[in-house]
Design a protein around this nucleic acid. Structure first.
Lengths: 340, 340
DNA sequence: TGGTGTTTTGCAATCGATTGTCAAGAACGC
DNA sequence: GCGTTCTTGACAATCGATTGCAAAACACCA
């Protein structure tokens, strides 16, 4: 009996393993699940054979049977983006934290396919039977679709803004207040003409813009100029470059809808010899880990991504347990660094 | 008959739908798959009922039956990292491109769980029965494990370095040559004492270091100093800060193992009044979209992430089709910008 | 030896689809 | 009116596990 194993033949299912062990499939199933119902000796013998042959039970079959998949879908609705590109660092950062929290609890993550033009994209995901729960990162302009599904599918948590009376459970910062904070910061620096870089079609971005308006209104300043800028990094640079003439025309403060947009803007301004923050002050939004590492370091509104991810997962788990979890709204925090 | 639907009762499976339509489950299945075997009229009638009730067949069951999951696992082996954190922007960037390419072809993506301490982490993923194929991003220090699995599991493609005689299929740049390019760039600028920021335990990083040594050897310069720096962004900043004394002690060129490390280094140097590239030149590796947007813009070795992702997916598909796909080694390109 | 109680194990139904096989019915020609 | 061909759809096996139920095996005691 050599101890260097050259597995004779791969075992394909518990039936084969059962034949090999001279027991029934039921016993094998119980043995592999380490149930005390089966005799300790047979149990260990079966486990040994399984190990020796590198056998692992088919998860698809098990999950079909137990009606529990241990898979959570993570989805970014990109309805308002012309191209669907998962490159936004904010999404990636929160995805990382979600992954940590979910895997710690024994769940796998499925990045589900978003069929761009289909009305029922969320229904397809939710009803696929592959997912125990769903996490949405961002609401985009898909409020209706999300509400519709939330009414009958409980284990779903959305990163985004909470609107009065909505059914779906959100976790996120108070975007409007965050926008206000950014505006107040810029105004306090002495900015008079503020520009907003972002796509207000997306609900949470729209809220940030509204908060910014709150700030300029309160200060008796003109409304900020809206300069649509998308989140997809491949078009962002061009869009910002296209906005440069408008920015150079009297704007002295920029509130960007995200840190990435802010970084691109700072770069583009530098290319035109504009000094940040002396000539134009810039604020970001998100407080990515990177925001602290840029030169100049970014003044931004912090979202506390790690805590947000934890809150999402915890809300999802209570919902998976059948209980109700309320929306969570975290306070935005202004992080003042070098750009404003 | 109102056309505003208030679905009477949810249909749970094709059996219920079959009863409702007065046909057998087999017919329903074929009708939903739009097979010409069933009469056009019954087919449309069944589809209408399904639509009306918002019924979607259970994917788990279908996949178990057809033995094809249309799911590709995407995994980052983080064997050499003490904490498993999916925050590296390079990983995220390539994940984004992989997601695009896979979803375009009708595949979903599963971020599989990596059980940190388990020897058989890759076996567990591959044998779970949930995945048609696997993409690994990075080899980390898991060469053995990858080889072992590659010998019997064909549909797997790995981002990383190709070593002579290896079984597993890799796609990646020639890391050694990339390291050499970085070294030559620094040397040509006049750097005499070069430091390497990265964790050489990881295969691809080690190759980059070796290439760097090739360059210093060829120029008759002393070997670069190794300053271990991990990829996890939460510890990276501290590690780099800890390296500062060594960097200020005669080092005039830094080759970083990744763009992120380079950006952190530039930031840390700025904090100590060191000017980049005048006092110390810095090169990155990856050429993230961000590298062009920093101030100063990063000189780096380009990996062409988009093309790499496409190559991985295409190799995976030919392997899924049963054919063999060879490893792909892309030439690294030096992108000279402001930091070196 | 028989009865009772406790472990162990096997049997068979089940999860929800897909699909090969075959029979019933329609259409058609002679 | 009968045989032949073609459609259409029902039946049942299958994918690979889990699990309730009941039978078998064994121990123990009177």
């Amino acid at each position: 009996m050599t101890d260097a194993p050259s597995p004779p033949a791969r075992i394909r299912n518990i039936a084969e393993l059962a034949r090999l062990a001279g027991v029934s499939t039921g016993t094998v199933s119980r043995a592999l699940a380490d149930k005390s119902l089966v005799n300790k000796e047979t149990r260990e013998r079966i486990q040994a054979i399984a190990r020796e042959h590198g056998f692992r039970p088919n998860q698809m079959a098990r999950r079909l049977r137990v009606q529990e998949t241990k898979v959570i879908g993570v989805v970014v609705p990109l309805g308002h983006e012309q191209r669907q590109h998962l490159s936004d660092p904010f999404f990636m950062a929160i995805l990382g934290h979600l992954a940590d929290a979910l895997t710690e609890n024994g769940y796998d993550i499925m990045l589900s396919r978003v069929i761009p033009d289909a009305e029922d994209w969320l229904e397809r995901i939710v009803d696929s039977g592959m997912l125990d729960g769903v996490l949405l990162i961002g609401q985009s302009n898909q409020f209706e679709a999300i509400e519709r599904v939330a009414k009958r599918f409980r284990p779903m948590v959305v990163w985004g803004s909470h609107v009065d009376g909505q059914t779906h459970c959100t976790v996120g910062v108070d975007n409007r207040n965050g926008g206000r904070l950014a505006g107040e910061c810029l105004i306090q620096r002495g900015c008079r003409q503020i520009a907003f870089l972002g796509d207000v079609e997306a609900i949470e971005i729209g809220e940030r813009f509204r908060g910014l308006c709150d700030a300029t209104d309160a200060a008796g300043l003109p409304r900020p100029i809206e300069l649509p800028t998308h989140l997809a990094s491949d078009v962002m640079a061009d869009e910002i470059a296209a906005h440069i003439p408008e920015l150079l025309d009297g704007v002295d403060g920029i509130a960007a809808a995200s840190d990435l947009i802010a970084m691109h803007a700072v770069r583009a301004l530098a290319d035109h010899g504009v000094k940040v923050p002396d000539d134009i002050a810039v604020t970001g939004f998100d407080d990515l880990p990177l925001a602290e590492q840029t030169i100049p370091r970014l003044t931004t509104i912090s979202q506390n991504i790690a805590e947000g991810a934890r809150a999402m997962v915890s809300a999802l788990f209570t919902r998976l347990g059948g209980d109700d979890a309320p929306s969570v709204e975290m306070p935005p925090v202004l992080v003042q660094r070098d750009t404003a």
